[in-house]
Design a protein around this nucleic acid. Structure first.
Length: 277
DNA sequence: CCGACGTCCTGCTAGC
DNA sequence: TGCTAGCAGGACGTCG
């Protein structure tokens, strides 16, 4: 479910409820997440003060006093919320962290593609993130971004989904960004011009900024850290609009399978630029 | 080495 | 109305 704007919304929602709180205890349900929660982590987390909560790509980092950290990923259906400890846990709640103010941080995940793990040192965190994630979209350097696109034969859609190329873009925002940049999802990275690369970079930033302002997109399960649904699904211009008229040119939005994901685009607006010999 | 594809899991719904 | 195949905001391992 959650891409960068949704994760950013969760983190912003949770920050005031978490920073400064002390974790009293941690408890896991019987079903394993993608990374199984280890029993010994509970003792390492208990008693620690939460000093920060931040986002990197689609990952959530909760820093603990003493250098440890919790590292979470929402997968497709993950929800991370702070609720009163006396509220009954919803179905599919797999992890609960009791806080010192009568609340609990709860991780709920229907499909269990998400994960939550404890890392003992900041260097572990840096290594974990470093070997998976490229730059945040706002940190992309035009020159290296252009070089990365040019050096690959993969379709632009596949490059946008690759977290090592740019961190945080997922299926919705890849399609919306390519539409905003007027580039066809199937275009090979190697055929991208400097002008197109810059158009795409700026389209990603604009799309993500708008989505964050709308608190992300709720298609099925997503809610923010306060339990609120997102609003950006009402502003999608191609995603889940197959068969409907393009809001810019009126042609029908198409859907195809690309890089293993459903891909939505407008054949009128996103034409391949002819390479002339 | 790179890129395409299958797999993990549950729930909802489009289409028969 | 009732059933079921197929699909869903992701990441990663494997295969060619």
């Amino acid at each position: 479910m959650p891409e960068l704007p949704e994760v950013e919304t969760v983190v912003r929602d949770l920050r005031p409820a978490l920073v400064g709180r002390i974790v009293r205890s941690a408890a896991a349900g019987p079903l394993a997440l993608r990374v199984p929660w280890r029993g010994e982590w509970a003792a390492l987390v208990a008693g620690a003060t939460i000093t920060a909560i931040r986002r990197r790509g689609k990952w959530i980092l909760i820093d603990l006093q003493g250098g440890g950290a919790l590292l979470g990923h929402l997968g497709m259906t993950g929800q991370l919320r702070v609720l009163r400890a006396d509220e009954p846990a919803e179905s599919h709640t797999h992890l609960s962290f009791t806080l010192d103010d009568g609340h609990e941080l709860r991780f709920r995940d229907i499909r269990r593609f998400g994960s939550f793990q404890y890392l003992a040192a900041a260097s572990d965190l840096d290594t974990f993130i470093g070997e998976r994630l490229g730059p945040e979209p706002w940190d992309l350097q035009p020159a290296s971004w252009y070089r990365d696109l040019r050096s690959s034969r993969r379709p632009l859609k596949a490059l946008l989904l690759d977290q090592a190329v740019v961190a945080g873009v997922g299926n919705i925002y890849a399609d919306e960004s390519l539409f905003a940049a007027r580039l066809p999802p199937r275009q090979r990275g190697a055929l991208t011009t400097r002008v197109q690369a810059e158009r795409l970079r700026l389209a990603i930033l604009a799309t993500l900024d708008q989505a964050i302002a709308a608190r992300g997109s709720t298609i099925r399960n997503y809610v923010g850290g306060s339990g609120l649904e997102g609003g950006f699904q009402h502003e999608h211009r191609v995603y889940a609009r197959a068969g409907k008229a393009c809001l810019v040119c009126g042609e029908l939005i198409h859907m195809m399978r690309l890089a293993g994901r459903s891909t939505h685009w407008c054949p009128g607006c996103q034409r391949s630029s002819r390479v002339r010999s």
